[in-house]
């Protein structure tokens, strides 16, 4: 599963900025900046990709980024180098993270859990490396509960999952299933693009 996922995103790295780099980033930038403005403490950023989110990070943070795709991380290097703070990146699968338990104060994701092969296991792995009471903050797209978008996203998902992300996941339910508390959802576009904030429970 890891090899296949890595291969998919290695392949996507060449055209990723073209497809996601202008329209989507311009449209979403203010929402991402608002979410990332709450960065505080030791931070894990999951799925750095080509680093499109890095210009939205507040300066002066201590951020560890991971991504499954070495080619994505190669593309991200100029943006990582330009970040005004302490940012290190590693190639790593969320399912096989080698960080110690309770390492991070916060975990951030951005359009990530549409692609993690086993989302509940991935979120549970993030909970392990989060300190008790630590924050999970996500900018994600999910499936919809509303006609006709629910049906459309379900219909195209079998094709989309081979090209890139899945488009009909219930990431909010996955966050709850992974054992997080205080789940708060803020819809940005319909009920499809949203921020999800949750807390790792005390152990």
């Amino acid at each position: 599963m890891t090899d296949r996922t890595q291969q998919k995103w290695d392949n996507a790295s060449g055209t990723f900025d073209l497809l996601a780099g202008y329209g989507a980033e311009k449209r979403w930038r203010s929402f991402k900046e608002d979410l990332f403005s709450r960065m505080d403490g030791k931070i894990l950023f999951l799925a750095v990709g080509t680093g499109l989110d890095i210009p939205c990070f507040p300066a002066g943070q201590d951020i560890t980024g991971i991504d499954i795709s070495p080619k994505m991380l190669e593309k991200a290097q100029p943006r990582i180098a330009a970040y005004d703070g302490n940012m290190t990146v590693r190639q790593m699968d969320v399912h096989k993270m080698d960080f110690a338990d309770d390492t991070f104060d916060q975990v951030y994701t951005s359009c990530t859990f549409c692609s993690v092969p086993d989302p509940v296991a991935g979120l549970t792995a993030l909970r392990r490396v989060l300190k008790p009471g630590g924050d999970l903050k996500m900018f994600e797209h999910t499936g919809s509960k509303h006609f006709p978008f629910r049906q459309m996203l379900n219909l195209v998902n079998p094709v989309m999952r081979h090209l890139g992300p899945e488009v009909n996941r219930d990431t909010v339910a996955n966050v709850r299933a992974a054992g997080y508390d205080d789940v708060k959802v803020n819809n940005i576009f319909l009920d499809v693009v949203k921020t999800i904030e949750a807390t790792a429970p005390a152990k």
Binding site: L18, L19, A20, G23, R27, H141, V193
Partner: peptide, 11 residues
């Protein structure tokens, strides 16, 4: 989508 957004345009 590259000009105007992602799902906001496609859906």
């Amino acid at each position: 989508a590259p000009f105007f957004g992602d799902l906001e345009v496609m859906l």
